[in-house]
Amino acid sequence: MSKPEAKKLLLLAVITVLGVNAFILGKVWLNRSVVVAELTLSERELDVPYHWGMAKEDSSLRLNIAWTTPWLTPNEDDWQYLSRQQQRILRLQQPQFASFRFGSCTDGYQRQQRSGWVLLEFNGQSYQDYLKQAEQHYAVIQQRLAAEAAAELNTGLAQDRLQAAAKRRQEQQQRAEEQWRVAREEATRLFVIDAAADRNLLQQTLAKHSGPTAGQLLLVPADIQLSYTWCQDDKAEKQPEVLINRLAVQSLYVAKPYAQRLPIDTDRQQKIRFQAQVYYGRFAEPWIANLALASGAVSD
């Protein structure tokens, strides 16, 4: 290759890199030129990576957005899973479900993924319903353990068996108390409450939500998949359901000045407490506008 040709290729590469960077920076600027929503999230909704800051060669930080979907009718067996808030199944109204134009179940639900929109609710009715479910679960556990203790006293069991049963109940009591505490103090308050391929359908849902329990609502893009329960071969009547695979933006970059405010996580038993001002822009893409430690920032 001659030197002129090499110079042309180098110049083309430089122009390409500059063009791509200009496009990305231009999109970021356009997105941030209009703030459509502002949320004050905390460590409950933004996960600090495990052992943050321990790798000296990497000082970058991204916070994963923690969210869930409402659980309709949980029972006691479901609660162990529900308490971890890893629910991704969402029941939809027929128009929203139809908007995705899912294919036949013979194609397999795994390949039935569509780009669409979801309605996020922060600290609203869905979280209040979750708290009520947690409180009811806690009350049921207390009643059951009390009934078991009373029944065992009348059975004439040997002392060692009574002690073993009492220890088991104490462990269940502690587990129930921890789940109830986590629901009140640590569980995410960010819920996906609706989804559609057509953004206008969610605008209609958004317009119906108002009042003191509505919380903060916003529309964001997401990847939505046909629920595996929809294709189950049974005779039960099925409700339209989808699986929310992921939000289009699932993690937030933390600028170095903000990241330095978070203490190094040397002990995973401690919880870093902070508040982050999160803005959503013109293209429904979020960014962290400010981050500060909360009072009592690191607690056991």
Rank of each mutant, 00 (worst) to 15 (best):
Q172V: 09
S210F: 03
L243C: 07
W180D: 00
A158T: 06
K256G: 04
I224R: 00
S251E: 12
L206K: 10
D233Q: 14
L252T: 11
T155W: 02
A150I: 01
D267K: 04
A158S: 14
R181A: 09
Q239F: 13
L190Q: 14
Q203V: 06
Q260H: 10
T205A: 12
G215M: 05
S251H: 12
A196H: 04
A259T: 10
S251M: 09
I193L: 10
Q225F: 00
V254E: 06
Q179I: 06
Q174P: 02
W230K: 12
Q174W: 04
L247Q: 08
R246K: 11
Q239W: 05
K271T: 14
E185G: 02
R169Y: 01
T155F: 08
I244D: 03
Q173E: 08
Q270V: 03
K208L: 06
K167M: 12
R184Y: 07
L190W: 15
T229A: 11
A158H: 01
Q269F: 07
D234W: 11
R184D: 12
G211T: 02
Q239G: 06
Q173K: 06
D233E: 11
F191I: 12
Q225L: 05
Q216Y: 08
I244L: 03
Q172W: 02
L217Q: 09
L226I: 00
E148I: 10
L157P: 00
T213Y: 07
T205R: 10
I224H: 01
C231S: 09
A150D: 11
Q159D: 09
D234C: 06
T188Q: 08
A222E: 13
A255K: 15
A222N: 13
A214I: 08
S227G: 02
R246Q: 13
L157T: 00
A176D: 07
V242D: 04
Q216R: 13
L206G: 09
L243E: 08
L262P: 00
L219I: 14
V249E: 11
Q270T: 06
N245H: 07
Q260K: 15
W230I: 13
Y253T: 11
R189N: 13
L201Q: 04
Q204V: 09
P221V: 11
A147L: 12
Q250H: 12
L153Q: 11
L157I: 02
I193N: 13
Y228W: 05
L162C: 00
Y228I: 05
T188N: 15
Q232D: 05
T213G: 05
D194M: 09
D233S: 04
T155V: 08
D265E: 13
Q216F: 09
Y253G: 12
W230L: 13
K256A: 15
V220Y: 06
P240H: 01
T205Q: 08
A158K: 10
T213I: 03
A166N: 12
E178T: 13
I224T: 02
A150M: 10
V249H: 09
V182L: 07
S227K: 02
Q163L: 04
A165S: 10
K238E: 11
W230P: 05
D198A: 07
Q179V: 08
V254K: 07
K256F: 12
A255Y: 05
L201I: 03
W230Y: 13
Y258F: 14
Q204Y: 06
T188V: 15
Q216A: 14
Q239L: 13
L226P: 03
A166M: 03
A165V: 02
K271R: 14
P263S: 03
E152T: 01
L153S: 01
P221Y: 04
